[in-house]
Computed example of a mutant assay.
Amino acid sequence: MITIEKSERLKNLPPYLFKEIDRQKDEVKKRGVDIISLGVGDPDMPTPPHIIEALQKAATDPQNHKYPSYTGMDEFNNAVARWYRKRFNVSLDPAKEVVTLIGSKEGIAHIPLAFINQGDIALVSSPGYPVYNIGVQFAGGRSHLMDLKKENDFLPDLSAIPDDIAKKAKLMFINYPNNPTSAVATEEFFKDVVQFAHKNNIIICHDAAYTEMAFDGYKPASFLETQGAKEVGIEFHSLSKTYNMTGWRLGFAVGRPEVIDGLGQIKSNIDSGAFQAIQIAGIAALDGDQSCVDEFNLEYTKRRDILVDGLTGLGFSVKKPRATFYVWVEVPKGYTSAQFTSLLLSKTGIVVTPGNGFGSAGEGYIRMALTVGQERMKEVVERIRSVEI
């Protein structure tokens, strides 16, 4: 029998903060409690039929059964460029400024491997999508955390980053509309980021997965709309949330050609590209009628209003989000994020995500995803109403 020892990179991973939640969830299920999960950001509505039909047709073509291009089909990259021009009025060269991803998570995890050396620094938001920090760690770098605070509208305070850290940093990860806080960025903030990047020679990696999930007429901007942005970085996008395609694993990165090329080099050595039939379905999604996106957002708006209005009526401090399908809720006084998450699960069968699971600066909050229908969302409010807090 050989001895199995995990690598240092795995040993050094942050602890799995949701392990206790999973244990409690199993216990609650065993009691026969009806679980309502608002914990995972996975859309519950199906992928639109025209996208599924495009996949079905493409999957029968033997030409699509071969190895795909490492960096994406020309046709898909061209569709990405068309979509960016139409949606954001941003011009892209599909041959140099677009790379296809097996979901944006894959690209986000791999980008540090292209630019981070042992001991290098990346600027990472806290709270934030855990993959930013983990990708940096896997590449041998270290993260300097930029705390997102309520008093700063959950935007990082660039002036609070020490000069010596800024000068050493290679990458900065930002994400707006934001997961988990649902905050949105201002034009002024993006301008400040571009100026900061130029001053300190930092590559900006903007995670724009939620730009199409917006409400009340609000249209989130692309970072690349900002003058000079394409000179300093790239933007990650995904079809997952926009078209309810989380399981399909298709996304893309766009922007500075040298950065796109570096990411493409990593991908060509690690993966073999996205299945062409799925890329063809992606073309149907990007080029097709976008009314399905409007319909999804209308449904999310109704769910948001039920949940936020209900929680506000119960005395919770919560701001109605303008984008994403997350609601960022302050926990009642006297509770930590983990304690309140545990209370909701054990007393009501409602699963939420503790804010500290996204970084220490998320302590004091929970994240609730709008991933159940309106009637179930009403039930969420009523179950919480029944609990003595």
Results as ranks from 00 to 15, higher is better:
Ile2Gly: 12
Lys6Arg: 04
Asn12Asp: 10
Phe18Thr: 15
Arg23Phe: 06
Gln24Asp: 11
Glu27Gly: 09
Gly32Trp: 02
Ile35Phe: 05
His50Pro: 14
His50Thr: 09
Ile51Tyr: 09
Ala54Cys: 08
Tyr70Asn: 06
Glu75Cys: 02
Asn78Pro: 00
Arg87Gly: 03
Val90Arg: 10
Glu97Trp: 02
Ser104Tyr: 01
Glu106Leu: 12
Ile108Pro: 11
Ala109Leu: 13
Asn117Trp: 03
Gln118Tyr: 13
Asp120His: 03
Ser125Leu: 13
Tyr129Arg: 12
Ala139Asp: 01
Ser143Gln: 09
Leu145Ile: 02
Phe154Trp: 07
Asp157His: 01
Pro162Tyr: 06
Met172Gln: 08
His198Pro: 07
His206Arg: 04
Ala208Thr: 09
Gly217Arg: 11
Ala229Asn: 04
Lys230Asp: 09
Phe236His: 02
Phe236Glu: 00
Ser240Gly: 15
Trp248Asn: 12
Gly251Ala: 03
Gly264Val: 11
Ile266Met: 05
Gln276Ser: 13
Asp287Arg: 12
Ser291Thr: 15
Ser291Met: 04
Val293Ser: 01
Thr301Tyr: 04
Asp309Pro: 11
Phe316Met: 10
Val318Trp: 11
Lys320Tyr: 06
Arg322Asn: 14
Val331Cys: 07
Pro332Gly: 08
Gln339Tyr: 00
Leu344Lys: 06
Gly357Thr: 14
Gly373Glu: 15
Glu379Val: 15
Val380Met: 07
Glu382Tyr: 10
Arg385Phe: 15
Glu388Tyr: 08
Ile389Asn: 06
